[in-house]
């Protein structure tokens, strides 16, 4: 029995099918990457896992709890980091953490300690009394990441969560995520950056046009793609169909000339 079980999951937006019968089993205590091009359904899948939106049909269970029927319970053990940080611009980070901490009813001392530790690790202490609206995109992203971790969630869902981070912060977050999985936490994150997926993820699922094009670790994906080398980009292109890529590039070159 896997920690997260996704069975025959469909999501339609009007006439557009975002997820087309997804089946996935995600074991706990690992970093699970959802890799896919823009518009492949990554955000939709992560929002459904997080209980933010409901599927059109199909089931998803986390730790044997049906997500659709237990949204609040799932949200209480989950930290969601959206693609673009959604924060209250006229609050300071401290006030925002206070709000989040109060909603999750975290012990005051523990919350203070966690905020101190995370802000020190992500080098954001000096911004704690600034308004969030005045911070850079990268700093806002760090604030969003901290706010989703301060209640010590069992599952961390990051939708392109490394966007806007400088290499130093990105490295710190990657190491932090690895440490969290050692403590039994499960991290699911989406990206279209091969390098990040390759260096961080224990398991990767490639999502393409709402379908799973391949799942497994790098070796298994290599097998599925029939690829001879370990380059994830090549595996990704093979699994998502690279036949028309040369034609597209040639046509682009001609139009530029």
């Amino acid at each position: 029995m896997s920690f997260i079980e996704i069975h025959d999951l469909y999501k339609k937006y009007g006439n557009t099918t975002a997820l087309n019968g997804i089946n996935l089993n995600i074991d706990g205590g690992q970093i699970y990457g959802i890799l896919g091009p823009n518009g492949s359904g990554k955000t939709t899948l992560l929002k459904i896992i997080s209980g933010i939106i409901s599927p059109t049909s199909g089931n998803i269970a986390i730790n044997n709890m049906n997500v659709s029927e237990n949204k609040d319970k799932i949200k209480a053990i989950l930290g969601y980091i959206p693609e673009t940080p959604s924060l209250y611009e006229s609050l300071t980070p401290i006030e925002f953490f206070n709000f989040i901490g109060s909603v999750f009813n975290i012990n005051s001392d523990i919350l203070n300690e966690r905020v101190r530790a995370f802000t020190a690790a992500l080098e954001t202490e000096k911004y704690m009394n600034e308004f969030i609206g005045s911070l850079s995109f990268g700093t806002k992203q760090k604030i969003a990441i901290i706010s989703s971790l301060i209640h010590d969630p069992d599952i961390i869902v990051m939708d392109e969560g490394m966007n806007g981070l400088d290499p130093r912060s990105s490295k710190i977050i990657r190491e932090l995520l690895k440490d969290l999985t050692k403590k039994g936490k499960t991290v699911i994150f989406s990206t279209h950056i091969m390098e990040i997926a390759e260096t961080v993820c224990d398991t990767i699922s490639i999502l393409y046009n709402g379908d799973i094009a391949g799942t497994g670790n790098l070796e298994k994906l290599k097998e599925e793609a029939g690829s001879s080398n370990n380059d994830l980009e090549e595996i990704f292109l093979k699994l998502t169909g690279d036949e028309d890529l040369d034609n597209l590039l040639n046509s682009l070159r001609e139009s530029i000339e």
């Binding site: 611009e89 006229s90 300071t92 401290i94 006030e95 953490f97 206070n98 709000f99 901490g101 109060s102 909603v103 009813n105 975290i106 012990n107 005051s108 919350l111 203070n112 905020v115 009394n129 600034e130 308004f131 609206g133 005045s134």
Partner: peptide, 19 residues
Amino acid sequence: NSSIEKITTGIKLDRTYIA
């Protein structure tokens, strides 16, 4: 858009409705 108003409070937890 930004403001430079300085807030210097620490974290003190509230009941949800107060938060």
